[in-house]
Design a binder for these strands. Structure first.
Lengths: 252, 252
DNA sequence: TAGTCATAGTAAACGGCGTTCACTTCTGAG
DNA sequence: CTCAGAAGTGAACGCCGTTTACTATGACTA
């Protein structure tokens, strides 16, 4: 298994060249610009040859989405590892890395976090249990979140109200991560949807009518969110020691 | 100007028939399923005839997006008007109406609130100042929001910190609505992005890995959000007197 | 009423697309 | 050396958006 044959090497390079071409088209023209004929043309091939590597266009787009999930997850994990040991700094760096990647790669972000595209939807549904890419994302954010909120007075309704309102509707989340207190699970989902809403609205252009520099709004919102989690009175910034600007004006 | 000629009447009906067909295709197959040839086929026409009504496919999709904006805005305004005079009840009803429409019409929601689609992006950029559809949406939510938060102790950083961090980056929003205190503008944007993130994640299927009944999470989150705005200690539900379920399990 | 003219529609065509099928070339294992 | 299978080609089918030339017809005017 150690020595790949010559054919296997050629196949691997061709496969990655196909996905590189697909991503180039995605970046320049959006999802609908990805076409087998254009990819093959850029490679000096003909379109039917791609069918030796993917059963159809949708499967190619799905595989591309999977690669993008892994890429973003790696970036976020790297930001976490470079942020020191304090959970609040780790979470801050991870959220900033997420936004930074999304703003720098809007087409890629749209592919994996926007409208379900046929290929991506199939890819998302196919691995719905343990290896779901969204679930792995959640797990990455969940660990420092748990560390941060351990023993803290979380915002939101008290546990009994949560049990009454949410009941067992969070089982898909709690079943994956052992015994997760319901107030922690709720606080995590609340924070995750807040982060998503902020980043997605910026990337999709739905914030341009109201905000001049979305980066500033993001930093303010991030500070408020992490401050609320720690029970702070919504005060100062969360120790922006890492790479991101504590109160800057990120450029798009 | 009162009596439209026969030709004008025919033209109007044909135009709405075209948009009806486009919407039908949008609902059944997503944005990429909208095709001039399919619309014309359903109408018993040929595709080039549609060019008498729209310069190209993108313009048709943009017009459809504009209609959907108006439809959703009308529904939200109706929910507001049916919710009585208390701002908190109005906001509750409006948020519920927004989610209800989004869940009931995922394709339409995706078209106007998801990834920028060529035609929709052009439509969105074209009227970027006063008549921006997102801006009119914001205005609809802004009025009861202002009434609710008047004199209340808003969550989030104090005004001086906001001035330092956000500075004049909120001018696109404040310039449209007179003198808007910066803490109100920030609280409004924070609430709006939270609502968007919650609804968009549910509609796009990005919440299925964690939550069983997104409706329950929505109700909990909505109660917490409105409770925070009123300065309440994150307690009881916000007087669900209207139509929506106070703690129900909305079906998808 | 007869004439004119813009309007609404058609048919044909062009290029691009995903996908299939028959066919050729070439690699690598026995 | 042989040969099965992998990789790639070319042609074709049906779909698509869009353009062009052309026709019928409703509406206004002399």
């Amino acid at each position: 298994m150690s020595a790949p044959t010559r054919r296997e090497r050629l196949r691997a390079t061709t496969l990655s060249e196909i996905k590189d071409g697909a991503r180039r088209l995605l970046v320049t023209g959006g999802v609908e610009a990805i076409s087998l004929r254009a990819i093959a043309r850029d490679m000096g091939m003909t379109a039917p040859a791609i069918y030796r590597y993917f059963p159809n266009l949708e499967a190619l787009v799905g595989a591309l989405a999977g690669d993008l999930y892994d890429e973003l997850r790696g970036i976020i994990e790297a930001a976490r590892d470079a942020a020191g040991g304090k959970p609040v700094d780790q979470l801050t760096a991870m959220c900033r890395a997420m936004r930074h990647w999304a703003v720098a790669h809007p087409a890629e972000f749209s592919l994996i976090f926007g409208n379900p595209v046929p290929g991506v939807a199939a890819f998302t549904d196919a691995c719905a249990d343990a290896e779901h890419p969204g679930a792995r994302f959640g797990a990455v954010f969940l660990a420092p979140f748990l560390a941060l909120t351990r023993g803290a007075a979380l915002p939101g309704p008290p546990a009994d109200v949560l049990h009454q309102q949410l009941g067992c509707h969070l089982t898909p989340l709690t079943a994956k991560h052992g015994e997760l207190p319901i107030e922690v699970a709720y606080a995590f989902l609340s924070a995750w949807t807040r982060l998503y809403g902020l980043v997605a609205m910026e990337v999709f252009g739905h914030l341009a009518w109201a905000v001049d520099s979305p980066g500033a709004l993001f930093e303010t919102e991030l500070a408020a969110l992490l401050g609320q989690l720690r029970g702070a009175p919504d005060g100062g910034p969360p120790a922006g020691n890492g790479d991101g600007p504590p109160a800057g004006s990120a450029r798009h």
